[in-house]
Design a protein around this nucleic acid. Structure first.
Length: 937
DNA sequence: TGTTTCACG
DNA sequence: GACGTACGTGAAACAC
């Protein structure tokens, strides 16, 4: 490619290299070079991003020119203007600093231009180049998410946020700043920036700034005419702080004349030179990346010394993801001979990745369509079993496609190996496949689950679905199921997919699963989460599978009667509401309701929310109702009925399985970052109980004839765990003595006797106790108790005085999170806290989550342990475990076995923490029995 | 598809 | 006095 003159027709990419590095550092788990322990996580992420940029941009939109721009170390000219500029920035983390210079080497190794300039920030260089390129008539894409660069957008310059995969044009800038790119500087000068320590005008944020600029045209005019502003506070601020605002403008204005010693021709895109790039990657010991990039460049991967570590049970596994993923290479197994050959491969290897394909997502209903296997990366097969083809007959049935092994015959061949104790079966979300196999007469065991491996390793960092894992850890985007099945009404089921196409999709899943397993399994030990995975995750799979298949009986008629009654009440309320409003409208629309309440009826309690819509949540409506307004009170009643009807009485009926007559939920083991389970389709963990009307819904959950429902729940488990973890002696003692913990708290705080205590006082103490678990704040407590914020803060201060251990626990936990990037439960479960070092409003959020996680997570671990022991503990009883609701287990038991079951289950639950953790407080369990779930509570 | 509201622990 | 805050979930309806 010959470059003569840079300009029209060219496309320049300017990459914010420093931004890339920080994002890579914070987004990825720490990684060190095996040979000498050099931290290389950020470098690895940086290289991956560079490579991705180069690879992704090969289309017509490809850059013709590209430069990676870095911040130069040391002070910039902005510090001379304003010494406080970025003065509060902490130094880079210790394990990041040594990686900075190497990222420059990496850039050059990829054959990309690398620019930095002393005394200037990367943003200035980017701005200067973008401006010059724009003038020359070229297109420019700035790869960065830094809002300071938004002033450059327009006239052929766009930004691209690589993390969010989002282009930022003039429209997006207007969204963010409320003004066009040409006025961004003005708005920033007024709003300032706490992160960079740009003062701006105190009391004025982006919203107000945009308002002012839009009204007066530009900053100079605004400052000139500041005296005309109506609001006294604003007027004074703008007059008094005019100099400060002008300094802020200097700080936020990017330089368009930064000295740059490269020409555009130096930035022309050229392919990397394998002889330069691969030795660099080898030096970094990036094994997987070297292999992948070598493959892309069409050369052999360099040899890198194998680290001394076990890669799996056989110890001879191919390193994960070394081969490119090529769906064309997978085999379709169509006859018994080939299937037997695969079984032999499995025995030779000792483990196999397995994936089932079905006609849908509901494991209790769907049919098994096919099975995929993989024993080695890149080598996988699909065994189609009941694929259909042709037009089908008049009854909607279709003909079985030819050349498929009959279902039963295939299962008979696979059964021995799938049940073989010496063969490990690996799956992604194995609970699903285990249930499918169980319904087809196969008890698959032993098993490993890549979803749960990832959960144990990376809990809190990201979700653990296969697509996310493949993209993040294998840098591969799997074929989407939507592209195979279509969407919406025209979607088909998997048995209707042509077998050739099905093979590519399905076998790829098994291939990916195997690669993920080869990557994750050896990491458990180093991450110190082997125990977590082996005792809290993996053994839960069969327990939950059994519970879910048990299901719970639901009385359809009861629900149906309630639906009718709710419908009637709602109709009555609706006409009342319309009359009060003076016109008819959709009561279910928060937007319309807000307009009626605040615009048409003129009630107080204005706007909020980022969309600008009125907020009409319970809090607001209750306040209005308390002031004596009828309409909001009626709406609250209507809302409650609408919720109960749509979410429960109506929806639950549709979840009754026609074969079993019962409702089967599905628990997501890796759903909650803390270790809690999540229940879906339907969610049986949020069945109403707090309100009288809602409670009736629990009556529909019933026991089979001759049986009763038995509910056992931990009493105050989170507060007990808090007392233990934070070492609060008087709290511990109260639990040991069996005292009313909220009354005792109130007594300690307000010096009132427990006997004859005012219920209001106890209520407040209770709110504080719960608040502590959630990472208390004056604001939150004030809102919860509906008291002034000052009072709430005073309560909290008193609380911390009386229980100083709590303060220490909170501070220590946040400090631990900041240092390690995660917090831990008493059982060693790690909950990563990626945002903990974030700035701005994010920070408070992350802190509270970090404070809460060890408490909520330890409680979750305890009940997991109880559940895992349960099948063995009750194996001689005719009892069935049906549901888990965070601190409660629900059983279905024949009437005559209730007492012995209760005592056995109670014992297991109360002792579930030991012997691993010896709690200083006893765990106690309350039990209830009844013909339905409401009675059992 | 994202937002709002509300059900639970 | 800038911003927005109790922690963890899932589902349904509305609005775009």
């Amino acid at each position: 490619m010959s470059q003569t003159t840079f300009g029209k027709g060219h496309h320049l990419h300017l990459i914010d290299g420093s931004g890339f590095i920080f994002r890579a550092y914070h987004a990825l788990p720490p990684l060190t070079r095996k040979s000498d322990g050099l931290p290389v996580g950020a470098i690895s992420g940086f290289c991956n991003m560079l490579f991705k940029m180069v690879e992704d941009q090969k289309g017509s939109d490809a850059p013709t020119h590209l430069a990676v721009v870095f911040d130069h170390k040391g002070k910039t000219f902005r510090s001379d203007i304003y010494p406080e500029y970025k003065a509060h920035r902490p130094p880079a983390p210790e394990d990041l600093a040594p990686q900075f210079p190497i990222t420059r080497d990496a850039t050059r190794a990829f054959n990309l231009a690398c620019i930095e300039a002393e005394g200037f920030e990367a943003d200035d260089i980017i701005a200067t180049l973008a401006d010059q390129a724009r003038t020359a008539g070229a297109r420019v894409t700035i790869v960065s998410s830094d809002k300071d660069l938004m002033q450059m957008v327009g006239g052929g310059v766009e930004m691209y946020d690589a993390m969010k995969n989002r282009r930022i044009g003039v429209e997006q800038v207007e969204e963010k700043f409320g003004v066009g790119p040409d006025r961004v500087i003005d708005v920033q000068s007024l709003a300032g920036d706490s992160v960079d320590n740009i003062p701006g005008a105190p009391g004025i944020g982006i919203k107000t700034a945009a308002l002012l600029i839009n009204e007066y045209g530009d900053l100079d005019t605004l400052l000139e005419r500041a005296g005309e502003i109506k609001q006294p506070k604003r007027r004074e601020t703008l007059i008094e702080k005019a100099d400060q605002i002008r300094i802020s403008r200097e700080l936020v204005t990017l330089k368009l004349d930064t000295p740059i010693d490269l020409s555009f021709d130096d930035m022309a895109v050229n392919a990397p030179d394998p002889d330069v790039l691969l030795p660099f990657l080898a030096e970094m010991e990036f094994r997987t990346m070297s292999a992948r990039i070598a493959a892309k460049l069409g050369v052999d991967a360099p040899a890198i010394a194998e680290p001394v570590s076990d890669t799996g049970p056989s110890g001879t596994a191919t390193p994960a993801a070394q081969l490119p993923i090529d769906p064309e290479k997978y085999e379709t197994v169509r006859d018994v001979d080939r299937l037997n050959a695969w079984v032999q491969k499995i025995y030779d290897r000792g483990y196999v990745a397995v994936d089932t394909e079905t006609t849908g997502l509901n494991e209790m209903i769907v049919d098994l369509v096919g099975i995929c296997l993989s024993v080695e990366p890149g080598e996988a097969c699909y065994i189609p079993l009941i694929h259909k083809e042709g037009e089908g007959d008049l009854f909607g049935g279709s003909n079985l496609a030819p050349n498929q092994i009959p279902l039963d015959q295939a299962l008979d061949i696979l059964r021995p190996v799938l049940q073989d104790e010496s063969i490990l079966k690996i799956g992604q979300n194995m609970k699903y496949d285990a249930k499918i196999f169980k319904r087809n007469g196969i008890d698959i065991a032993p098993i490993d689950d890549t979803m749960l491996l990832s959960y144990a390793l990376h809990g809190g960092l990201h979700n653990h679905g296969m697509d996310a894992l493949a993209e993040r850890y294998l840098d591969h985007k799997p074929i989407s199921i939507k592209s195979i099945l279509g969407t919406g009404k025209s979607a088909i089921t998997f048995d209707l997919v042509p077998i050739d196409e099905a093979t590519k999709y399905a076998a790829e899943d098994a291939d990916i699963t195997l690669r993920l397993w080869q990557m994750f399994k050896p990491q458990l030990h180093a991450a110190k989460v082997t125990k977590v995975y082996e005792t809290l995750e993996r053994p839960l799979i069969p327990v939950l599978a059994k519970m879910e298949m048990n299901g719970i009986k639901v009385d359809r008629d009861h629900l149906s009667r309630m639906s009718n009654s709710f419908a009637q009440s709602m109709a009555g309320l609706e006409s009342e509401i319309h009359e009060l409003a003076g016109r008819s409208f959709n009561v279910g629309s928060p937007k319309q309701l807000g307009e009626i309440l605040f615009d048409e009826l003129g009630l107080e309690g204005g706007k909020k929310g980022k969309t600008g819509a009125y907020s009409t949540g319970v809090d607001i409506l209750e306040d209005l109702a308390a002031e004596g307004h009828d309409l909001p009170a009626r709406v609250l009643d209507w809302r409650q009925m609408s919720k109960l009807k749509s979410t429960y009485t109506d929806a639950l009926q549709t979840h009754i399985n026609p074969d079993t007559g019962r409702v089967h939920t599905s628990y997501v083991i890796s759903g909650a970052s803390t270790g809690r389970l999540a229940s879906t389709d339907p969610n049986l963990q949020n069945i109403p109980i707090r309100s009288e009307a809602g409670r009736k819904i629990r009556e529909a959950f019933v026991a089979e004839e001759g049986n009763v429902l038995l509910a056992l729940d931990y009493s105050q488990i989170e507060l007990r765990i808090l007392a233990h973890i934070a070492k609060i002696d008087n709290l511990k003692q109260a639990f040991l003595d069996g005292h009313d913990i909220h009354a005792m708290t109130a007594s300690e705080m307000f010096h009132v006797p427990i006997e004859g205590m005012d219920p209001m006082i106890r209520r407040q103490a209770k709110a504080i106790n719960f608040g502590v678990i959630y990472g208390i704040s004056g604001f939150g407590l004030a809102r919860n108790l509906r008291i002034p914020r000052k009072e709430a803060q005073a309560f909290i201060d008193t609380y911390f005085e009386r229980f100083p251990g709590i303060r220490k626990y909170m501070d220590d936990t946040v400090a631990f999170a900041k240092e390690h990037g995660h917090v831990e439960t008493l059982f060693g479960r790690k909950i990563h806290t990626a945002e903990i070092n974030a700035k701005g409003p994010h920070a408070g959020f992350a802190k509270r989550a970090a404070i809460n996680a060890p408490i909520q997570g330890t409680a979750a671990d305890v009940i997991r342990r109880a559940m895992i022991q349960m099948p063995d503990a009750i194996k001689n009883f005719p009892a069935k475990m049906l549901l888990q609701v965070h601190d409660e287990l629900l059983f279905e038991v024949p009437k005559d076995a209730v007492e012995e079951t209760t005592e056995t289950v109670r014992k297991v639950m109360e002792n579930a923490a030991s012997p691993v953790v010896k709690l200083d407080v006893p765990l106690t369990v309350d039990a209830g029995v009844g013909n339905n779930w409401a009675e059992a509570h």
